[in-house]
Amino acid sequence: LNLKQAKEEAIKELVDAGIAEKYIKLIANAKTVEGVWTLKDEILTFTV
């Protein structure tokens, strides 16, 4: 999975969960695949 694909998957998951745009922007700015997954997990843990 490359960075672009990771971001697309994570953003789709966050949108489906009804997460606010400000958190989705954090994913869009992530620099690594690991960073994308870590941010996604943290956002889902603390906002859902």
Rank of each mutant, 00 (worst) to 15 (best):
V15C: 07
N2T: 15
F46T: 12
G18L: 04
L44K: 06
A17R: 12
Q5P: 02
G18P: 01
L39W: 03
A30H: 02
V15A: 07
N29H: 11
D41F: 10
K40S: 03
T38W: 14
E34Y: 07
K22H: 14
I11T: 06
E42Y: 15
K7G: 02
T32L: 02
K25C: 06
V33D: 01
A10S: 02
A20L: 07
L14C: 04
W37N: 13
I19Q: 02
G18V: 02
E8N: 05
E8H: 08
I11R: 07
A6E: 04
N29V: 07
G18C: 05
A20T: 06
K4Y: 10
L1D: 10
G35I: 10
G35C: 13
G35A: 15
V33M: 05
K7M: 12
K25E: 11
I24G: 02
K4I: 12
L26A: 06
L14N: 00
F46N: 14
G35W: 08
E42N: 08
I11M: 10
E42F: 15
T38Y: 12
N29T: 09
V36I: 05
D41K: 12
L26W: 11
E21P: 11
L14A: 03
T32D: 08
E42I: 14
E42V: 10
L44N: 03
D41L: 12
L14K: 00
E8W: 09
A17W: 10
K31S: 14
E8R: 10
I43L: 11
K22C: 09
L39R: 03
L26H: 05
K40M: 13
I27D: 01
V48G: 15
E34T: 08
G18Q: 05
N29R: 08
A17I: 07
E34D: 08
L14P: 00
G35M: 15
K12E: 04
I19K: 03
A30L: 07
F46V: 09
T38R: 15
L44Y: 06
N29I: 07
T32Y: 02
N2L: 14
T47V: 15
E9V: 12
A20S: 11
T47P: 09
I11L: 05
K40E: 01
K12H: 05
Y23K: 02
E9C: 06
E8Y: 10
K22V: 11
K12Q: 08
I27G: 00
L44A: 06
T38N: 13
E34R: 06
T38F: 12
A30N: 01
T45P: 04
Y23I: 04
I11S: 04
